[in-house]
Nucleic acid binder design. Structure first.
Lengths: 118, 118
DNA sequence: CCAATACATCGATATTCGTTGAAATGTAGA
DNA sequence: TCTACATTTCAACGAATATCGATGTATTGG
């Protein structure tokens, strides 16, 4: 991932409705959510959502597939992971003790439903 | 971390010069970098950098301390970690096999200098 | 084929954001 | 104290962006 892609991704996430879309898709898992249902969940008009989904797609944060009349959107987990790696790359000058706790906390917290963690 | 903070953080990172500042600070480690040196590294005027640092500080992504005439900025590792956790919270509906590879890659990649990884 | 559903695109507008130049604040040495 | 240095604040301008309304495209069922 280069700086240009990372900028597009962070800028995409720095917008209320787009962040909600991505979080909804992250929580929904690989099954994804139809565009119409996303519009309801986020509370915006369909055309506005389309604009935001295009932005997210261009940033590599979501993917889409057509199913009948609906278009199903899913989170692009690889894109999210690349983004995080880009941000933390070469951190702490070879002194892992500085940021290892943060990474550890992430690994524990990321993949369990809320309330199901130690 | 709530949505408001996460939005501020992502919006802050979605700007070329601010992203470079954060990455420079992440790479610099806990010693930090003086504002003047940051301005040179990023290639912007001091007053413009001040504007961006204020934004980053308000988003909880950087911290600062005064040392003589200089103000030393450091990355707020806790803030970065919270942000990532917020983004990935409740992912993949309890099916960790979907995003575990991403988290694993991150843990391996984050805390080693480039070229020092398997 | 026609109508209805589900999304996407386009043009216009209003707001937000980043940069600049000038001035102010704070700190250290002569 | 006076001067130089380092950083911040402020007002204002130009550029980027989110939203809305209307229109366009694709898919399904009658």
């Amino acid at each position: 991932m280069d700086e240009r892609q990372a900028l597009a991704a962070f800028a995409a996430l720095g917008q209320e409705h787009r962040l909600r879309v991505v979080r909804a898709l992250v929580a929904a898992g690989p099954d994804g959510v139809a565009a119409g249902a996303l519009a309801d969940a986020v509370g915006i008009a369909g055309n506005t959502l389309s604009f935001h989904l295009k932005e997210l797609s261009h940033a590599g944060l979501v993917a889409s597939r057509r199913e009948g009349r609906s278009v199903i959107y899913t989170a692009a987990y690889a894109g999210l992971s690349d983004l995080i790696r880009f941000l933390m790359r070469d951190c702490c000058q070879g002194r892992p003790e500085v940021c290892a706790p943060a990474v550890e906390a992430l690994a524990l917290a990321a993949c369990c439903p809320a309330g199901d963690r130690p």
